[in-house]
């Protein structure tokens, strides 16, 4: 392992352990959350039932099955929607 990749791995591990705050745009508003994290983790942190919502990640609508392996990184744009009354 070269010094550079060692440094990168160290940085990654430190970030994972220290839970860095990542800044994202969540439903159009600035939002800070400990991460990086998956969509499933974000929903759990927000106490949102994943069965009743839909998520758009950087303008791509996610299949529900992808929530667990889609990682949200700093600068990402996330939209979480649900159904409300309408005509």
């Amino acid at each position: 392992m070269g010094y550079r990749s060692f440094q990168a791995k160290l940085h990654y591990l430190c970030a994972k352990m220290s839970h860095e705050l990542v800044k994202i745009a969540l439903n159009g508003e600035p939002f800070e959350v400990e991460g990086p994290l998956t969509v499933t983790e974000l929903l759990a942190r927000l106490d949102i039932d994943p069965r009743r919502i839909a998520v758009e990640h950087n303008l791509v609508v996610l299949k529900r099955a992808a929530f667990g392996h889609t990682t949200i990184n700093a600068g990402d744009q996330v939209e979480i929607v649900n159904f409300v009354g309408g005509g």
Partner: peptide
């Protein structure tokens, strides 16, 4: 029946 699609209110959460 029709329903609307809206952003979940994050500040409430």
């Amino acid at each position: 029946i029709t329903v609307a699609v809206r952003r979940v209110n994050i500040s409430d959460r």
